[in-house]
Design a protein around this nucleic acid. Structure first.
Lengths: 343, 343
DNA sequence: TCAGCGCCTTGGATCGATCAAGGTTCGTCG
DNA sequence: CGACGAACCTTGATCGATCCAAGGCGCTGA
């Protein structure tokens, strides 16, 4: 940062470094981008000059010439108020860290308009980003098909549920494996009447998670009929659903599609003075902060978001390399964070 | 997006639009940036051409020429695992939305190295961002002084606690007003033995929040001695502190410096079978998801983060305008989200 | 001696927008 | 009638890095 002390307010350019090191511009450029082309002593001389001047290539100039921004667009979807779902926080952090190591920065945006692809379109047209990470695939994912038709590089966090023909790169977490893990955990604890509270039938992710529960139950020849409920993803719905199930099916344990619903269950159990964790077990999904700090702790399925980020960035690097390498989908397995709510 | 259907893969440039509209490049540039300079009919003609071609200015070229990136750097600090503090999520969303309306995007980064200013330095030297929003001021804020000496435009979310001489722009939330609000709320409910659980003495923010509690208590001539505890910001510490206070001071209410500590209090109350919200009131700070979904709900001080974002962006626009306008600090007042934990 | 290679230089063009200065066109007014 | 200036538009240069092609120089090996 030598130059910051100088009078001149403009940062040093490649030409400045070249003059200082007594080499040509081209050589400095090579020192930065293809050091293997230089003789070790020349390289060292140039690097010294770079360090002395505190030179760093001007992003705008480089971007203009190379037609790349080294930025990855990510739409920031905040957590809903009143829910426990806050995966975005951990996920974004992981993505920022991982992409930073590969020389990419994350550009956040939000769509203020109704158009689901408007913001994507703007960024693409302005060549402001090299690629996107698309996260809101639970909606049925119009972005993915649009981006594909637009030939824009992107990787999705989430499978293309609604379109098995889709060929784009994606990374996802095996929700069914997670709920199956949760259910088996409860079965091992001796439970057999294990209820499910999940999302409405039109949610692909919800049905996937539900299937893990049914799979685990049927594997031990246990019935699932009458033990399931599908509701909105709110605490209140979870509470109501649990209340009904407690009356009608008398389950000794609950597996839920989200921590939000699980909190609803805890609520319902509290209403009737049932001591959760001892009398009735509860497992949530997402290992949210809520699961972590609620007194006693809520057992919850934890998505390996750090690993997801790594795979996403790996896939992006493939897409952005020349020639582009399109990897297949990657499915990761979640773990179970066991706490007192499951006994 | 007309061009996306064409064979050519390169987006249209200003020159393409100029040719189509039968005007010069400069005129197109003016149509985009200073429409008032054009005659209405020419403007319309150019705008038609822009729409027909689906033109959008190339960011890199514009950035190079104007020496501005229209990007604002923000270091992403994820929530600590096992705490309830998740203000970042809501904050980031607000910032993204607000800055988007002013034509700015948010560039996220993280510092992987030990150097607290390394990442800032890199971005500045590469002229990758126009300005920064600095959030982690609770550390004593070496970034602020460094950025100031570097003459880099930035706005801090958080007062310059350790350096009252600092002249940079900042926006903050009046923590003392928040805890005062909370305490008065409890006083109005009839409580008089109200305990405080806060952070260690070296935390500026912690001491500020604490002062709101003492102020409100003293205003009603109530004692505070023996009713306060200063601990680490973890659930376990909150629980221990509450246990000790319950034994030694028999408070009927608790005001906490964070929702994390408040959860610890709920935990302690649960340990001894005390029905919180009925027998003992509890108020947290930050209105986290945890506060919102814990059965019954935790009353909590809510920071006006949306408003904070608006003020931050307003300040940034001032700094980035020519000539730069440096506004004074802005202090916003939080509100109280009342739930059952306070009766 | 000369071809070949490794390393570097030279000079230029290029990316696409904006800046600064220079040209039109037109109406107005002495 | 011609000068003048405002309103409007055009032209050439510029931002800084990269890409490209051609060539220089010293050294090695045939």
């Amino acid at each position: 940062m030598a130059w910051s002390g100088r009078l001149s307010l403009t940062p040093p350019t490649l030409a400045d470094v070249a003059e200082r090191a007594g080499v040509s511009r081209q050589t400095v450029s090579n020192a930065v981008n293809s050091p293997e082309l230089l003789r070790p002593d020349t390289l060292a001389r140039v690097q010294d000059a770079i360090a002395e001047l505190g030179y760093s290539p001007n992003r705008a100039a480089r971007n203009l010439r190379t037609r790349a921004s080294h930025l990855i667009g990510l739409k920031f979807n905040p957590a809903q108020e009143g829910t426990a779902n806050a995966a975005m926080d951990r996920f974004v952090h992981s993505v920022v860290e991982t992409s930073g190591e590969s020389g990419y920065h994350i550009l956040l945006f939000s769509d203020t308009t109704d158009d689901p692809v408007g913001a994507y379109d703007d960024l693409l047209r302005a060549t402001a980003v090299d690629a996107f990470i698309v996260t809101d695939t639970y909606l049925g994912n119009p972005q993915a098909t649009w981006l594909t038709s637009r030939r824009a590089p992107f990787v999705a966090f989430g499978r293309p549920w609604d379109n098995p023909e889709a060929t784009h790169a994606w990374v996802d977490v095996d929700g069914a494996a997670g709920t199956s893990l949760a259910t088996e955990h409860l079965l091992d604890k001796g439970h057999s009447r294990i209820a499910w509270i999940g999302w409405r039938k039109d949610s692909f992710i919800g049905e996937d998670r539900r299937s893990g529960w049914t799979r685990a139950m049927h594997a031990r020849d246990l019935p699932t009929t009458g033990l399931a409920s599908r509701v909105e993803d709110t605490v209140a719905s979870g509470r109501e659903a649990a209340t009904v199930l407690l009356d009608e099916a008398r389950p000794t344990a609950f597996v839920c599609a989200s921590d939000t619903l699980a909190m609803g269950v805890l609520h319902a159990l509290g209403d009737r003075g049932i001591h959760w964790g001892r009398d009735v077990a509860v497992v949530g999904f997402d290992d949210s902060q809520v699961a972590q700090v609620v007194p006693g702790g809520l057992t919850s399925v934890r998505q390996p978001l750090e690993q997801v980020a790594v795979e996403l960035v790996k896939a992006l690097e493939g897409l952005l390399s020349t020639p582009p390498v399109a990897g297949p989908g990657v499915l990761l397995t979640p773990t179970l964070a066991v706490r007192l709510s499951s006994g």
